[in-house]
Design a binder for these strands. Structure first.
Lengths: 224, 224
DNA sequence: CCAAAAGTGTTAATCTTACACCCATGA
DNA sequence: TCATGGGTGTAAGATTAACACTTTTGG
C-alpha cells in the first residue's frame, strides 16, 4: 500500500464518549491527559490512528486500554477538523459515542491513565473540543431514543419499569407520568416480563423486565 | 506546527454528495474519475485534505473546482475509514452532503472533471464506497425533514405549494394529500405569501410562497 | 396496621387521516 | 364554455396528556 505522506501530513485520532447510567445518573469515561500544554486536564479517551487500522479498530484499542473490554455498543458521531483544534499538530478527530452498563459489562479502569466515570451533572470541563463531543453525543442519544429503543446497553439485563423510566427521564431531561410511560413502552412491544419479581427494601414487589432481543434489534434498526 | 507523519501515514479526503431537486427529480453531482483502477468511473466530487485546511475549507475547494461556487448549504455526514476502502492507499474520507438549487445558485460545471448532475432515479453506480455515502445522505435528509424545515436550499426563492409538496414527496418517497400537506406546512409557520400570483400555462393562478428567513432559521436550528 | 413503593383506567383534548367539490383561468 | 390546475373544510379515528386511588409488602 502506497505511502501518502507526501500529500497529506495530517494525523487522525479517534475519541470516545462512553456513557453509562449508574445510580440514576449519567456518567462519562474520562482520562487525565499526560502531555503539555493540557497536562493533567481531563479528556475523553482517545488515540492516534495507525495506517493499518480501521476506525473501529482504534475504538477497540481505546476501549481495551482504558476499560479492558471492547465489546461495547459504539456509534460514530462526527469528525472534528478545525485547523488549530489540537495544540500538538494537525490532527483531525473522529468522535464516537458508546453505551455501557457497569454491572453487566466487565470494566477494569486503567489506573495509569486515571480512567474514571465522572458524573455529567457536575458539568466537567474537558480539554480540546471534547465538551463539544460529549454534547453532540448526548444530543444524538436524545434524538435517537425518540424513534428507536434505548436501554439494552445502559441497563442491567433485568430491570424494573421505574428504572427504565428513570433512564429515559435522565437522558431526555424530562419527567414522565408513570402510567403513560408504562403504557407507551409496553405498546412498543420490545419488553418481556421475567416471571420473578424483585424486592426493594420496602413496599410492593416490582415486575422485572428484560428486552426481547429479536424485537429490540428490529426496532433498533428500523425505528418505530 | 509539528509534523505528525512519523506516527500516522494516513491520507484524509473529503467527499460531497451535492443534491439538487430539478424538474421534479432528485439529482446528484458526480465527476468522472481520472485514475486507475477506477479510471472513468463515476464518483462523488472529492479532494485530498491539506494540512493547513479545515474540513470546511476542503469542501469549499471541491465546490469551487466543480461548480464554481462555494456558497452552498453543507452538513457533515460521516467518516469512512475501512482499511481497504481506497485502492490508492490508506485514505479515510469525511463525507458531507449539500443542497443546491440550479436556478438561484450559480453553477458552472467543470468540464475537465466531467462534473454533472445525474438523476438519482437511474440508480447510478459510483466507485469506492460512494453509493453508501449517497444513501446515508438521503437517509439523513429524510430524517431531518421530519423535525426541521426543508426547501430553502433546494427550491427557488419563490415557489408554489405544489412544488414544495413535490419536493417533500420526492425525498420522503411518499404521496401527500394536498389538503393535509398544505395545512400542516402552513401551521408550521415558516412560509409567507408573496402577494403576486403565478400563472401556469393553463388553469387557475397559484399562490407563490417564500420562506420567512427568521422563522425558517429558528426552526432549522431548534426543530419543530 | 401503617408507611412505602408498585401497579392500574378513564376522560378530555389534540392531532391525524380520509375524502370531494368549487374556483379561476386561458384556450 | 369547457378543460385544466388550484384551492378549500369537515368528520371519524387515533394518539396523547392529565389525573388519583388501590394493592402489596416489610417493619
Amino acid at each position: 500500500m502506497k505511502n501518502l505522506t507526501d500529500f497529506s501530513n495530517i494525523g487522525v485520532s479517534v475519541s470516545i464518549s462512553l456513557f453509562c447510567y449508574d445510580g440514576g445518573e449519567k456518567k462519562i469515561l474520562t482520562v487525565v491527559n499526560k502531555k503539555q500544554p493540557f497536562k493533567n486536564a481531563l479528556t475523553l479517551p482517545n488515540k492516534i490512528m495507525k495506517s493499518d487500522q480501521s476506525l473501529e479498530d482504534v475504538c477497540s484499542e481505546i476501549l481495551k486500554e482504558n476499560i479492558g473490554n471492547d465489546k461495547i455498543y459504539m456509534e460514530q458521531l462526527n469528525a472534528f477538523g478545525k485547523v488549530y483544534r489540537h495544540p500538538e499538530g494537525r490532527i483531525i478527530d473522529i468522535s464516537f459515542y458508546g453505551l455501557i452498563n457497569l454491572e453487566k459489562d466487565s470494566v477494569v479502569l486503567n489506573i495509569e491513565n486515571n480512567a474514571k466515570f465522572i458524573n455529567l451533572e457536575t458539568n466537567p470541563e474537558l480539554a480540546f473540543d471534547h465538551n463539544e463531543m460529549i454534547d453532540m453525543g448526548l444530543k444524538r442519544i436524545k434524538r435517537r431514543m425518540k424513534y428507536r429503543p434505548l436501554g439494552k446497553n445502559l441497563l442491567p439485563d433485568q430491570f424494573t419499569m421505574k428504572e427504565l423510566e428513570g433512564l429515559y427521564g435522565s437522558f431526555l431531561s424530562k419527567k414522565f407520568d408513570k402510567r403513560n410511560f408504562r403504557r407507551r413502552i409496553l405498546e412498543m412491544d420490545f419488553l418481556r416480563e421475567v416471571k420473578k419479581v424483585q424486592r426493594n427494601s420496602r413496599g410492593r414487589k416490582a415486575i422485572l423486565y428484560e428486552f426481547d432481543p429479536k424485537k429490540y434489534n428490529n426496532y433498533s434498526k428500523t425505528g418505530f
